[in-house]
């Protein structure tokens, strides 16, 4: 089939990879360049936190998340970066004065999925065996099922793959006006397809009701003195801060969550919160170098859950919010099975 995809962010890419495997011909449209950084999937830390994200989300996230975890390895293999996937568990900890947050966290998880009762609370000795650099923490949860995708590598490798694929035409720097049944309209033109997908995220605000942006801010730090190997979250009464390790002692530190569509640079307050939190977690961050400070907005619907909408020759996918990498493969699979492949 001849298929049009509006929006080549995370969802657009996962869609494209799926559709190419079925031998379809694709035309992609995006307002950014193929290697640009406008997509939220470019800012993400790529955590596959199937349990931890449940603290502030509904349990449907859990099922989709588990399904995605099983789908990611094949997707990454398809674009030749199998090693961008890691599943060796994650750590959840807190400062001693905030240990109550650990109780709240686990109770909330248990109320949502029975599997949460298997999550193990580690003492200092057990934690140090897993992560010697976290020795100053006396209490932490370990969630073996969780992992991460190196989001930035996924974005780059998927660009390389799609650009070089003979069945793909990629219109870069093209802002799509509207997507409707079998049609993608842009700068006064209309292209028709056998099926179209709207995966524009916040770019679809004109066509999708109740879509809003939720601002997030992250740091990239190079910290040669820090050796944390698993995604690590620190619970705090007011912030949820995570440290996600990348190769060569690079760490992604995030993320704020502010109800605003503002994409301007990081605020001083956010930077103080994020940096003092990581410094308090490991003093080795003091001499880390700030490689990047990134701000973006997550496309979000009223219930903070993803939405798939079908009509004749069209599927819209939106609202992956802070769960992009955790949900995209499963959401795309469901969208295809209940739409085009039905």
């Amino acid at each position: 089939m001849n298929i049009g995809i509006a929006g080549v962010g995370l969802v657009g890419r996962v869609l494209a990879l799926n559709l190419l495997q079925q031998g379809h011909t694709l035309t992609l449209f995006d307002e950014d360049t193929a290697y640009g950084d406008k997509a939220a999937g470019m800012t993400a830390a790529g955590m596959l936190a199937v349990f931890a994200e449940l603290e502030s989300a509904e349990s449907v996230i859990f099922d989709h998340g588990n399904r995605s975890i099983s789908l990611w390895p094949a997707l990454l293999e398809q674009i030749g970066i199998s090693d961008a996937y890691q599943q060796k568990g994650s750590i959840i900890t807190a400062h001693p004065q905030d240990y109550k947050e650990l109780d709240h966290f686990i109770e909330t998880l248990k109320s949502k999925v029975p599997e949460a009762s298997e999550i193990k609370l580690l003492d200092r000795r057990e934690l140090t065996q897993l992560e010697p650099d976290l020795e100053q923490h006396a209490k932490a949860f370990f969630i073996p099922q969780e992992g991460q995708v190196d989001a930035q590598r996924f974005m780059k490798a998927s660009s390389d793959y799609l650009l070089s694929h003979s069945n793909v035409t990629w219109h870069q720097n093209i802002k799509v006006d509207t997507v409707r049944s079998g049609e993608i309209a842009y700068v006064g033109k209309e292209d028709t397809f056998d099926w179209v997908f709207d995966a524009r995220g916040l770019g679809a605000q004109k066509d999708v009701e109740n879509l809003r942006g939720v601002r997030g801010e992250v740091f990239w730090l190079d910290a040669p003195e820090v050796n944390i190997t698993r995604p690590t979250r620190m619970l705090h009464p007011r912030y949820k801060i995570y440290i996600v390790p990348r190769p060569n002692n690079r760490y992604i530190i995030g993320a704020t969550e502010i109800e605003s569509e503002d994409k301007s640079p990081m605020s001083v307050r956010s930077s103080l919160e994020l940096l003092s939190a990581v410094y308090s977690m490991h003093s080795g961050f003091a001499e880390a170098r700030i490689v990047n400070m990134v701000t973006n907005c997550r496309p979000t619907l009223r219930d903070n859950l993803p939405n798939i909408e079908h009509s004749t020759k069209m599927t819209r996918i939106n609202g992956l919010y802070r769960h992009g990498y955790l949900l995209a493969p499963a959401v795309v699979e469901e969208a295809l099975n209940k739409g085009m492949y039905k």
Binding site: R212, I258, S260, E261, K263
Partner: peptide, 16 residues
């Protein structure tokens, strides 16, 4: 306070 700074901040949530 935190939502209002920067460009076009907060409006969607406030509308809700």
């Amino acid at each position: 306070r935190r939502q209002a700074a920067g460009e076009g901040g907060g409006n969607q949530f406030w509308d809700i």
